[in-house]
Design a protein around this nucleic acid. Structure first.
Lengths: 213, 213, 213, 213
DNA sequence: CGCTAATCGAGACGGTACGTCGGGTCTTAGG
DNA sequence: CCTAAGACCCGACGTACCGTCTCGATTAGCG
């Protein structure tokens, strides 16, 4: 399957014929999330999603090329909820976003879908790219935003080398996201305020120590 | 499927009837890894595994309750390869194990299977427990071993409170494993010597900073 | 199996969705007869029939509930070939239909299938009814037709009591069909012109004798 | 399968090793009849028969080559029950044996097994021979016995030509057995005293009429 | 207002894999 | 040599989804 009808139709207005139903899209995505919660990834069925959405299977396949694409889209928007409210200090900001992220991963549709699509993507470069652009990379904004805010506050020095800065941001992103995901989904231990505090201390301590070396 | 014959038979010796073939077990696990590499998780078929192993499908179902259980067992032993060779310093040890772990995750059977079974486990407590006991928890030994060695060397102080020590070990484990997995499988960036070095600096810096606070 | 979709749909027109393929039905029934000849009843496989018919197994199961039902339908129409050509006398007509019937039972698909479905039907009232309505009862027409023709010729008197007439017709039917089947399939002796002649003499002699008593 | 261990061991006394259990044979045959009644032919399982008989599958396969052979043996002896008690006249004798035969066919194990093994035999000459020798031909004695008795009584003339006599006996056998089986198993109508009387009248009338021609 | 064309629902289609079951064989330990 | 037990290979079962396809029936915008 190669995305036979790429997706709605961004700019090609399809000026003739019956237009696609907007409600169908919303109903399908909602039904997908609902089914994910109830059934998990592997037992989720496109036919079942169609039934839940009150839609024909054909309608579903006209818009998405398969399970992977559908679930990625259904889950992606959930990740846009993450924000970085200004809590006054870098440490507080980090703890805040860690807890927010953990709360997101605690929701069944998210925890199920995230790992599943990542797993599915290991042999599919196109899917991997879609995940990164739709989900992962969009969250790096949080790191950059947090660093910018900390620099404004004077908690962190302005970086000299932009390349080093980018690499450090990537490192932080992998450490934060990886640790929270691992704690939450693999170790299956709670990401509570206490853990967030200890983790934040470790991270910021490491950053300042690394900066002085 | 309800795990009709949970697994071989550890202590119930099944003293009657033809004994189960030891070679079949080995052939099945090897075939599973081979098929994982070639096909990936979702296209892996138990019938195909049986064929590759030169074994009847029923033989396979006698021993494992399904795809998940089989793959967990097939992959678990790969993780036992990880070791902690003494490289003379804590930093060198950490970098070594990070690179080793990354190399393991770079192998197709591992990268494919690990995320998939974790994903599958989000709605299945029994599977989650099996993964933890067969794969995850066994690697915590590396953290404990590394810390012990560092304490012998005098790089780290002997911990005062055993509970705090355990929590710190868990934290470190989640940070290391999570960061490497995230870097490798989600961000899809290489875990090379340079990244390992930067990560180790961050981790150890954070540890000593946290210890002084 | 509980006849999930009893059969095509005689009067319910199923006005929505893609209509069922007529060609598929014909191909399946033909493939069934072919497979019966080659393999016999017990080695006939629905999967194999589907393959021969160039049809998916599901298509087959959509229409028939199992092997029995399929074979009954596949064989039933063969029995409609039987006719009662006017040979000028009752005796000649009877001999003719006996030989025709024997020829039909000599064909491998018929001889194999008939006994098998009858055997299967001993514990299945629904199947028994299906066989009677699809195969057996339809041949009683031959008895009635032959009697009518003989009465027109004056060979037999018009019956007085319709109930007695019906019972006699049933008796004749059982005697003719039973004797031919038994001779052909159980005793495994040829039903040739000579046997047909002797049998006809016995039957007609008995009828006239019984009529006079 | 070609009867790997022909059958018990008629004259070869197997003078060494543990002797075969006599009780096992009886238990297996009884269990076979029991299972036939409950399950019918096609759902009868050799494993199930073994379990019912309290015997290992191996034991069963050592004695019989398969389902067909086993069932033939299990059913054959039931047919030896048929007798021809002297009722004083040929007509009464015939009616008696017809009713006896119908009663036998009314028993579930008989009705099920008879047709099934006959059906199975259509493509297997060896099985056909086994059935004929074990079941069918043994019943011809009834015809011969009845004729002999009728000749003693003077109801029938002594036959002149032995070949004609044999052919007539075969014809009668096919007509009687066929009609009763067809009435009972195919038409599914009761073989009661009334039907037996009408049938006997037809048969004997036909015989005397044919004899005069 | 009618045409054109893409949409919608429904459901049948050819496939592939599932997990189970029965057949018949083989391999144990024990009688 | 037999027996009970049970694992073995094999092949068919009937089911579930897959992704595609054909239907008749809606909707739009354009002429």
């Amino acid at each position: 399957m190669v995305t036979p009808m790429p997706h709605p139709t961004p700019d090609r207005p399809a000026r003739t014929g019956r237009p696609r139903s907007q409600e169908a899209d919303a109903a399908i995505l909602a039904a997908t999330r609902e089914a994910l919660v109830e059934l998990g990834w592997s037992k989720l069925t496109l036919g079942d999603v169609a039934t839940r959405a009150g839609v024909a299977k054909t309608t579903l396949y006209r818009r998405w090329a398969g399970k992977n694409e559908l679930v990625v889209d259904a889950v992606a928007e959930l990740f846009d909820e993450l924000e970085l409210p200004d809590r006054g200090s870098l440490a507080a900001d980090v703890e805040g976003v860690v807890l927010q992220f953990a709360a997101l991963l605690g929701r069944p549709e998210t925890r199920t879908a995230l790992m599943a699509v990542v797993a599915e993507s290991t042999g599919d470069e196109a899917l991997r790219a879609r995940i990164r652009s739709s989900i992962v990379d969009r969250q790096k904004r949080l790191v950059l935003e947090g660093r910018g805010r900390a620099q404004e506050r004077g908690e962190l020095p302005a970086e000299e080398d932009p390349e080093t800065a980018a690499r450090t941001a990537d490192l932080i992103f992998d450490v934060v996201a990886g640790a929270v995901v691992h704690r939450s989904l693999v170790s299956c231990e709670p990401v509570d305020a206490e853990w967030a505090h200890r983790f934040t201390a470790l991270l910021l301590g490491g950053l300042t120590a690394a900066a002085h070396s």
